[in-house]
Design a protein around this nucleic acid. Structure first.
Length: 338
DNA sequence: GAGCCGTGGGA
DNA sequence: TTCCCAAGGCT
């Protein structure tokens, strides 16, 4: 079993030799940029984030610029990245920093974690990367490395397992060089200790790895127990008038909160009067499947499903700077082409 | 504690 | 094709 001092030494040495040092959010101590990257990277892979990160920073160079923006514009720049509550919380947090901290990003882990959308791990990452504090992180990469190295069994969604992982993460976090250590732990998980086919022959921790020794690499970390995914079927009402399209802004909570979509009704309701059925398609979420049947309708008011104040119209060939979920964006594109 | 919240890519 | 899940947090 690795002792913390030896573990830290091996990990930091790995960083010096093989760590990632040229990602767009590295090489800066700007807490705003580091925080932005950490939020975008939640449950999202590096290669997906990079173009969004660059684009976002170009439009909002400082947190005060972000605080002053409209929610629609923030959602627009987030469109396609998913988990849209992250964007709404990001905007709220920016306003909080502008108002309560005079635009100066808070520096203690407690204050950082009090920002909406920032949990324990993200706060630890920002405090370590931006302010060189000795704060632990526990993302999916670190969980995998620790679970395998120390033989921590069970699914991390269970509180007892999560507590064990945090305990080990805290115990192993060094007092100094914490930014390098944290970066190296994520690099190890992302590059070496991968979910399948880990590269144990190049791993600095393989000497004393519990999973390698006990042939439990595929069993660790423990997997989430799976359940059947329900299917939901809806109509999307596509109403085109003079190159304008009718969209509906969804309520702030729930799926695609704050984004603009076609007016939607359950297929279990009666089928609305329509001119034409467009091609149906299936959109898969993590926890259910959405079967979408778009219907071309003459006039939304005729269907009687939407209050007029819940809808607005946009130019079809030049959609305004608003947030659109991916399948809506794709459908709009095919409509504009025809 | 358990469910919710997007999307894209790998195996 | 189908399953899994990735720099998690909120309710």
């Amino acid at each position: 079993m690795w002792q913390p001092k030896d573990f830290q030494h091996k990990v930091i040495e790995y960083y010096r030799k093989h760590g990632r040092k040229h990602l767009p959010w590295q090489g800066t101590k700007d807490a705003y940029r580091i925080w932005l990257s950490e939020i975008m990277l939640q449950q999202t892979q590096v290669s997906t984030v990079i173009p969004y990160y660059e684009n976002f920073l170009q439009r909002f160079p400082t947190i005060v610029d972000l605080a002053k923006a409209s929610e629609d514009e923030v959602m627009h720049l987030w469109s396609g990245l998913g988990y849209y509550s992250r964007a709404r919380n990001l905007h709220k947090a920016a306003k909080k920093v502008a108002d309560e901290f005079n635009g100066d990003f808070p520096k203690t882990q407690e204050e950082i974690e009090a920002l909406p959308g920032v949990g324990r791990s993200t706060a630890g990452a920002v405090a370590a990367f931006a302010f060189d504090q000795s704060t632990a992180i526990l993302d999916g990469n670190v969980k995998r490395v620790l679970a395998r190295c120390y033989g921590i069994e069970g699914w991390a969604g269970k509180a007892s397992v999560l507590n064990s992982l945090w305990q080990r993460a805290e115990a192993n976090t060094p007092d100094t060089h914490t930014a390098q250590y944290n970066q190296a732990m994520m690099d190890l998980g992302a590059v070496v200790c991968t979910r399948t086919k880990p590269k144990c022959d190049t791993c600095p921790l393989s000497d004393k790895c519990y999973a390698l020794k006990h042939d439990m690499i595929s069993a660790l970390p423990g997997k989430k127990p799976k359940k059947a995914r329900p299917k939901r079927a809806v109509y999307w009402l596509v109403c085109l008038q003079n190159d304008q399209v009718v969209l509906h802004k969804r309520p702030p909570s729930g799926i695609w909160g704050g984004l603009w979509c076609f007016p939607e009704i359950e297929q279990s309701q009666s089928e609305p009067e329509h001119q034409q059925k467009l091609d149906s398609f299936l959109h898969k979420f993590s926890h259910y499947d959405l079967e979408v049947q778009p219907l071309l309708v003459k006039n939304i008011a005729d269907t009687g499903i939407m209050e007029p104040n819940q809808i607005d119209t946009f130019a079809l060939n030049e959609i305004a700077e608003i947030g659109l979920p991916t399948p809506v964006s794709k459908l709009l594109q095919t409509l504009a082409e025809n």
